[in-house]
């Protein structure tokens, strides 16, 4: 569960400025930006996502490398993606 998964920002300011939409392995989900609040987040940026929160900004090389690394671990990455895809209460996030 400590796996941080890289996601690419597809929309900023979802609901309010504290959230952005990111895409991980073709799945989109809203994430909280409270921990990366000191840097600007724009569409196309890579974020390290952990339990629905962006914990760090990543440069593209690091993000691609991490995605590849995790995808090779098979089951664990798939579990994380499945969890990431599980939306409670539909598309609408708080």
């Amino acid at each position: 569960m400590c796996l941080g998964i890289p996601g690419i920002v597809t929309k900023v300011g979802v609901n309010d400025a504290e959230f952005a939409e990111v895409e991980v392995s073709s799945i989109r989900r809203t994430v909280h930006l409270g921990m990366v609040a000191d840097s600007s987040v724009e569409v196309g940026d890579w974020l390290l996502i952990h339990v629905g929160f962006a914990i760090a900004k990543l440069d593209e090389d690091e993000a691609i490398r991490t995605v590849d690394f995790q995808a090779q671990s098979g089951k664990d990455y798939q579990q994380e993606i499945d969890a990431f895809a599980s939306l409670i209460g539909g598309e609408d996030q708080i």
Partner: peptide
């Protein structure tokens, strides 16, 4: 008992 991906999902459940 429900599995959540994020603590925010639990908060959403409370709101719903």
């Amino acid at each position: 008992v429900r599995m959540v991906y994020s603590p925010l999902d639990a908060l959403k459940l409370a709101i719903d």
